[in-house]
Nucleic acid binder design. Structure first.
Lengths: 195, 195
DNA sequence: ATTGTAATAGAACAGTGTTCTATAGGGGGT
DNA sequence: ACCCCCTATAGAACACTGTTCTATTACAAT
């Protein structure tokens, strides 16, 4: 759009690229996620992606890290009622995934060629998981979820949330009421593991 | 390996290509899944993949269809005890995914560029899901899973199985006993939805 | 032995991520 | 106001991708 050979201020490049990358991922999916397309959308030279990130995978790493940081925040909300909080975290998980599909795609849905998150990024992912463990542990103090370690129960909960949401994003949800079915699934799991 | 300019019998090409494609997917993942690599592994000319399939996506379609066909078979086992069968189907789901990672990757874990399963292939997928619905319906006759439609309960079960398995394949399972945790998850869900 | 099918090798095309080059815009110092 | 230096830019180049087209020829059926 903007005429070429006008240059973008240095401190605007990184956010512009990230924004453009997320837009393209949302609109075109992983197929359209190319260096040249991102650069054009951000109104920036392709080289900028190599100077400000570490190439295409650097952009993916930034999205991955940003996603797990947001997810950790949204899963970490507490009200004082642990039993309410754990269900709220389950709801927040789905909301995050459906409202940030680009992030969720990078984090869980697609193996981009050559992309392996760094150890720092993996640590962020573990941090998000830890929020689930914390919820479970607070419930266990109240006498719930006694049948297994908090880590294992949290793994079950994450699997349940991710499974429902990922099938939904892949458009293979046969439920006639997806919202209610998700709530039903969450409460069913809670009841089944309550003792 | 074999000297070139020796040609492969026509009726051996398709199975050789499929076998090579699955091997490459297992060993190198989606990154290494290239037409030239598959052809070389199958000891076949790259053009064969266009003559016997419809290019790279044709191979993916064949793997997808084969996978859902196998999955439907393995989910469809019945013994007469519906409550046992539904749990067995859950176990069979995980076994299929872990023992056929290449298939599972194509079916659920990765959006290959430009690949969209045909309506026939999508019908196979629906057939596999239907086996779950059948199990749930047989349980409902016995008084179980009364709280929702069989389709919705089956969706919950599929989500649970897929979620656990897909995180496992992505190497993000924090459980210290993955096998036991899966069983615990399945029985927890059954108990939670029993009424 | 001859014929016809089809598997082959190989070039060619547009597109990919990535690296390197030379150019020149524009902010910060004088 | 000027100048200088940092760096964003354009563009070529590389090896790779999926795909199409070509000409050759191995090999089975006749």
């Amino acid at each position: 759009m903007t005429a070429r050979h006008l240059r973008t201020p240095s401190d605007k490049i990184a956010p512009d690229v990230l924004c453009a990358a997320l837009e393209i991922l949302d609109e075109l999916g992983p197929d359209g996620f190319t260096v040249r397309a991102i650069a054009e959308r951000a109104d920036v030279a392709p080289m900028a992606i190599y100077n400000h990130f570490d190439g295409k995978n650097g952009v993916l790493e930034a999205i991955w890290a940003d996603g797990f940081d947001q997810l950790r925040t949204e899963l970490g909300v507490t009200t004082g009622d642990a039993e309410v909080d754990v269900m709220a975290a389950g709801m927040a998980y789905r909301s995050f995934a459906l409202e940030h599909r680009a992030h969720y795609t990078v984090m869980f849905m697609h193996r981009f060629v050559g992309f392996e998150p760094s150890v720092d990024a993996a640590h962020l992912a573990a941090g998000a998981f830890q929020e689930l463990v914390n919820h479970i542990e607070r419930c266990q103090v109240l006498g719930l979820f006694q049948s297994d370690k908090a880590t294992n129960v949290a793994q079950m909960m994450w699997a349940t949330c991710h499974g429902y949401v990922s099938l939904e994003i892949l458009n293979i949800n046969f439920s006639d009421k997806p919202d209610e079915t998700y709530i039903h699934l969450l409460s069913g799991l809670r009841n089944g593991l309550a003792t």
